[in-house]
Design a protein around this nucleic acid. Structure first.
Lengths: 329, 329
DNA sequence: GTGAAAGCGCTAACAC
DNA sequence: GTGTTAGCGCTTTCAC
């Protein structure tokens, strides 16, 4: 491997001068700079980022932690994160928690021992007081999840309003018996959705029914299962907020197979506006989330803190959402 | 930040001894080891991986390069890679090429300047002779793509055989006019599929028709477009190998909307066995690929080269595939 | 404009 | 079992 010292020797200058060229410092004479650059080229020199990182105490790397990578929502989020990071000369290290708090803590450990400069949490598995102590090691930002008191930037969208819009749409379509699906009960974002759901019902003097609340809604298979549960109910909802396009697709598929007409017997609203919404029959009414932008914006914020060495502070950033009406309602 | 020297001073030992404890070396007395561990705990010490990496000249990081992250195939591949890497104490840096050779070359640059220890290519955008010189900086493995001469491990599955099986299935169903979709023409894996397709036709004395070959098949939207193209043909195929479940789903949706019966008017075979296959109407016959295993296996191979410092050699590893027959054929 | 020298935090010969 | 010492490749004072 070529080192800075070799270049220096060949060019008859000090390592300092070579380093200056490497870092685009001024105060290097034009001739020397050009000669050094030429020799670097000839020797196929590449500075060791291992040494640079060590010296500058920076990794130029951020970590993104998400529950699982192959969920289309998180895949898109990571795409956005990766895009914005590379544009700003940061690398992205990926971690999956599989909804396990321990794995999330492992990521925090990587912040502590300087494997990454900052962390983006795409969910929150631990109690906030478990995460909080790690703030002294570097910035941590929350994206796509909410916390009522965490003293960090939270980049998301108005879950309450989005859900309210969706449920209100169902009510306007004449539904009075409306169900609700969520994924994990400890998510405060999911809590906000629930509030939006309840508020929409209350504003129209509708009651909710606990039998119409379904948990653990992540995947198509969960949609199948939830459909089975609905079918078994004596009193069935006529409309459903699914919180997730995969779940919506699963319910639609299974219900149709069982002979239930969608949306006539059961109207379905998804969430996220994934591409799957376009290929089911009927197509899925959903909430469009600017997922890529969510990821990109979070990186921009993170880098702001990284570069300016600002003290992290609570900052709620909400991106807009939009109700996309299709055939399932 | 606490450093090793502080621990050493407090414990009245040398840095070496502390380092030995850190690295689980033998030959440290039980008492000292325990005392050192205790002090580390008390001071909340975490070794700087920046310093360790620099010292050992290892990043404990591998790069995975894929065209785009939010394609379900690559999302799953990355999931497998991430899983296996973490299990072996390696971190994963992700890069998207967006089918641009320059971006792929940037990843190679990160190998050169020691930002990663090795690279997994989930596709191949550059000519092999452009990639090859980077082998001197670290191992590069090819996954899910093929190259006829590259001197590196290639982890994939038998694209020829998988396609042959799928097309043969269509022929057995009585089809004689069969079309073929591909994504990029420069991919040798896609070339192998084409050969499998042609072989299956030839084995049954069927001719192929250039009008029934469709390129740039990546997404649902491409499926819509290809369907439009088919509809315009005077002589239409009665069956189609789509090479991709998204494309299959798009074609099915669009064709159905236009009044064509699937599979009666047009039989469709997908590829990858993504979850979308279960929610379209009809459900999609496809080729099941062990995608996660593909990613995991590639990491295992890569780490073997990393740990044992072996010379990289050409090694074709093929995982099994399976034809999944559903309603679209 | 340029260079000498120190040092980032850790690991690994080598000596004892 | 333990310590001494050197040094990984680079950046950064500071002096000239």
């Amino acid at each position: 491997m070529t080192r800075i010292s070799e270049i220096a020797k060949i060019c008859n200058v000090s390592k300092t001068t070579v380093s200056r060229v490497l870092n685009n410092h001024p105060y290097v004479s034009k001739e020397k700079r050009e000669q050094i650059l030429k020799v670097m080229e000839e020797l196929d020199y590449a500075p060791s980022s291992l040494a640079r990182n060590f010296r500058t105490n920076k990794t130029q790397t951020i970590a993104i932690s998400v529950p699982s990578f192959d969920h289309p929502f998180f895949a898109q989020l990571v795409k956005g994160v990766s895009l914005a990071a590379l544009e700003n000369d940061y690398k992205v290290l990926i971690f999956q928690t599989f909804y396990d708090a321990k794995n999330e803590l492992d990521v925090m450990g990587k912040l502590k021992n300087r494997e990454v400069d900052g962390v983006i949490l795409g969910a929150l598995e631990n109690e906030w007081n478990v995460i909080k102590p790690y703030l002294k090691y570097g910035p941590i930002l929350l994206c796509n999840e909410y916390h009522h008191s965490a003293s960090i930037p939270i980049i998301g969208y108005d879950e309450f309003e989005a859900t309210y819009k969706a449920v209100n749409h169902l009510i306007e379509k004449g539904h009075r018996k409306i169900g609700f699906c969520y994924d994990t009960s400890y998510s405060q974002a999911q809590g906000q959705r629930k509030e939006g759901f309840l508020k929409a019902l209350a504003d129209h003097d509708l009651l909710h029914n606990d039998d119409w609340i379904f948990g653990h809604g992540f995947s198509i298979e969960d949609g199948f299962r939830i459909c089975d549960e609905i079918v078994k109910l004596k009193e069935k909802p006529t409309a459903l907020f699914t919180g997730n396009d995969q779940v919506a697709a699963g319910i639609i598929k299974k219900a149709t197979a069982l002979g239930y007409k969608i949306p006539e017997c059961l109207a379905i609203v998804g969430y996220d506006n994934q591409s799957i919404c376009q290929v089911t029959t009927p197509t899925i009414t959903t909430i469009d989330i600017p997922i890529m932008e969510l990821g990109q914006r979070t990186v921009i914020e993170l880098i702001k803190y990284l570069n300016e060495d600002l003290k992290l502070k609570r900052d709620i950033i909400k991106l807009p959402t939009e109700l996309k009406i299709r055939e399932s309602t």
